[in-house]
């Protein structure tokens, strides 16, 4: 494969998640060889950074993925705004994905992965709760996980849980949309 995939992220926890997740989607993928991540200090920092990074980046063949949490607003409008910020690169080179609503929503959407990441907590009786069947209805996934796993921290949690995520089945649809989009984006890389 020529070129790398550059992930522009809102924060460090998603970087940790990708370290566990990407080698499962693309066996043999290594950070820095096949992909790099640029974590930011939140949403506004990410948005300020996008045009700077895309304008400055010159490696031919590199692809870009922008991952941003939905802030509860209009998802399509947000996507259009990010697309505008990313105008310096051809749109087929830039994948924009909105996380509904947080990385932790994806974790709640895969209870087995959550349980595998925290084997010291017995979560089996909680998984049947109705609210976890449609985690994207929850706007505060971090707090929900914190209730299940007292003392939960985002970056350490991402490192523990992400390697166990089931690529084919997640109750949070935005996870599957992200994985599919990534496969499409990289299919054009040779």
């Amino acid at each position: 494969m020529r070129g790398r995939v550059v992930f522009l992220l809102e924060e460090q926890s998603m970087h940790n998640a990708l370290q566990g997740l990407l080698p499962r989607i693309f066996p043999g993928w290594q950070e820095y060889t096949h992909w790099v991540a640029v974590p930011h200090q939140g949403k506004s920092d990410l948005e300020r950074s996008i045009p700077r990074k895309l304008k400055s980046w010159r490696a031919p063949g590199d692809r870009f993925v922008i991952l941003r949490d939905n802030d509860g607003g209009d998802c399509m409008a947000l996507k259009a705004r990010l697309r505008e910020l990313a105008r310096h690169k051809p749109s087929e080179y830039v994948l924009i994905r909105i996380v509904m609503h947080h990385l932790e929503t994806w974790f709640l959407g895969d209870f087995d992965a959550l349980a595998s990441g925290y084997p010291e907590h017995d979560l089996t009786t909680l998984r049947q709760r109705a609210k976890f069947r449609e985690p994207e209805r929850l706007t505060n996934a971090s707090e929900e996980i914190e209730k299940l796993i007292p003392g939960y921290r985002k970056t350490a949690g991402a490192t523990r849980i992400a390697p166990h995520l089931n690529l084919a089945r997640n109750a949070a649809p935005s996870f599957g949309v992200f994985v599919d989009g990534l496969r499409t984006l990289t299919a054009t890389m040779r």
Partner: peptide, 11 residues
């Protein structure tokens, strides 16, 4: 340097 390694091809 690992971050920058591939970016200078098109200089």
């Amino acid at each position: 340097s690992r971050m920058l390694q591939e970016t200078e091809i098109d200089e």
